[in-house]
C-alpha cells in the first residue's frame, strides 16, 4: 500500500513537473533571463504549487498522524545558518548554468534524453562529493 501510494504520488509529481515546464531547461533559463528572452511561465508553477500545498497542509497537518505512518516527519529547525544559505546560493549557480534542478531532472529522465542522464550523473557526483568530504572530516576529528 505504501509503495503503491508512493508510486502514484511520484507519477502525479512527475506529470505536474513535465507539463509545467520545470523539466525543460530552455523554459527555466528563460524565466530567469529577464534581460533577454523572458518567459514568466514558471512563476505560475511556483504559485500553483505553493497555494495548493499551503491549503492542503492546513487540513492534513491538523490530523494526529498520516494515514500510512505513525507520525509526520517535519523539519523542526528554524535558524538560518551558513550551510543553508551558502548551499542554496551554490545550488542557484548550478541551476543557472545547467537549467535543470533535481525536481525537474528526475521526471525528465523518463524522456530518455542523454542530456538529462549526463546532468543527473553529475548531480549524483556532487552529492557523493559532499558526503565523502563530511565523512573524511568526521574521521579526522575522531582521530584528533
Amino acid at each position: 500500500m505504501r509503495l503503491i501510494a508512493s508510486y502514484i504520488i511520484g507519477l502525479i509529481f512527475g506529470v505536474g513537473i513535465s507539463i509545467s515546464g520545470m523539466a525543460n531547461p530552455a523554459k527555466v533559463l528563460n524565466f530567469f533571463d529577464v534581460a533577454g528572452a523572458w518567459d514568466p511561465s514558471l512563476i505560475f508553477v511556483m504559485g500553483g504549487a505553493v497555494v495548493v500545498t499551503f491549503i492542503g497542509y492546513r487540513f492534513v497537518l491538523k490530523r494526529p498522524a498520516p494515514m500510512l505512518e505513525q507520525k509526520f516527519q517535519l523539519p523542526t529547525r528554524r535558524d538560518l545558518d551558513l550551510p543553508l544559505i551558502g548551499g542554496s546560493a551554490v545550488f542557484g549557480i548550478g541551476w543557472g548554468i545547467a537549467g535543470f534542478c533535481p525536481g525537474g531532472a528526475l521526471p525528465a529522465l523518463g524522456t530518455g534524453k542523454s542530456e538529462v542522464f549526463i546532468f543527473v550523473a553529475a548531480l549524483l557526483a556532487g552529492i557523493f562529493a559532499v558526503n565523502i568530504m563530511n565523512r573524511m572530516r568526521q574521521m579526522r576529528s575522531a582521530t584528533a
Partner: peptide
C-alpha cells in the same frame, strides 16, 4: 551540464 550538475549536487546537499 556536467559542471552545473555537480554544483547543484553540492548546493542542495549543503542547503538541504
Amino acid at each position: 551540464l556536467v559542471i552545473g550538475g555537480f554544483i547543484v549536487g553540492l548546493g542542495v546537499t549543503y542547503g538541504s
